[in-house]
């Protein structure tokens, strides 16, 4: 059976089609103002790309913050459960998932069989998430895609003391005006995010192996900082950003045991 996962996140929408153990294709687009429309659009685009009729898709599971807006889905499942399922599908040995998306950051502890054992999630504040990095990207005129590579050139990361997005931005601006190098500011930002994630992770404990998922996993500089901060190796797969949609497609296929 071919199944699909639709992950409507706060910034990006992801869709993925799965046939057995094979990923047929995936797409990423901005969610924008209307999550329902975004879901319909990205699903249509995915079907067109892989050349499959809607009727050939046996089951659709939606996830992400807009999951309940996806009317054509057969079921809505939280992104925490889907990220655990996606990570387990990619590597059944994974015991901890760090998922950093547009507005949420989550630490998910995985039990045998890919089930969620425990989780921690940021609450009111979006500091240290994708949106935080977007704000910094604008302040420093560095494209997000260059954050990882540029920060890795830093020899002495600048200390960033504020964890609030708005105050951190003004702190960054004052560092810029002091002439601190951009790579040092970037490395400092990554360290401040890593320590924030580490304190959340300490609440539930981090068991190896660890996988990072979500759009922010594409930032290698942050992954490095997290590895140093947590003293653990972190794997990132090419499917990191669509991992939630992957998990949704896996669960649409009838769960983890039947894989």
């Amino acid at each position: 059976m071919i199944t699909a996962g639709i992950d409507i996140g706060s910034i990006t929408a992801k869709a993925l089609a799965l046939s057995g153990n094979e990923i047929l294709g995936s797409r990423v687009a901005f969610t924008g103002y209307n999550p329902e429309q975004a879901a319909a659009d990205i699903f249509g685009a995915l079907l067109a790309e892989i050349g499959i009729e809607r009727a050939s898709i046996g089951a659709v599971v939606s996830t992400g913050y807009g999951r309940n807006a996806v009317r054509f889905a057969d079921r809505a499942i939280t992104e925490i459960i889907c990220h655990a399922a996606g990570a387990y599908f990619q590597d059944p040995s994974v015991r901890t998932v760090i998922d950093i998306g547009g507005q949420d950051s989550k630490i998910i502890s995985i039990a045998d069989g890919g089930r969620v054992r425990d989780f921690a999630m940021n609450d009111k504040c979006a500091a240290g998430t994708g949106r935080f990095l977007e704000v910094m990207s604008r302040a420093m005129e560095v494209p997000l895609d260059s954050f990882g590579e540029m920060s890795r050139r830093s020899k002495s990361p600048a200390p960033i003391s504020n964890t609030c997005t708005v105050f951190a931005e003004s702190e960054v601006i004052s560092l810029i005006s002091k002439g601190v190098q951009r790579q040092d500011i970037l490395a400092g930002l990554h360290e401040s995010i890593a320590s924030r994630i580490a304190s959340m992770a300490a609440r539930i404990g981090v068991a190896a192996p660890v996988m990072m998922t979500g759009g922010v996993a594409k930032n290698g500089g942050l992954v490095d900082a997290l590895e140093r901060c947590l003293s653990v190796e972190i794997s990132v797969t090419p499917n990191a950003q669509v991992n939630g949609a992957l998990g949704a497609a896996v669960l649409a296929a009838g769960g983890l045991e039947k894989k």
């Binding site: 913050y65 499942i77 939280t78 992104e79 925490i80 089930r115 969620v116 054992r117 989780f119 999630m121």
Partner: peptide
Amino acid sequence: QLLTRLETFVST
């Protein structure tokens, strides 16, 4: 946010 937490907890 709250729904995500509670739904996940209940389903575990």
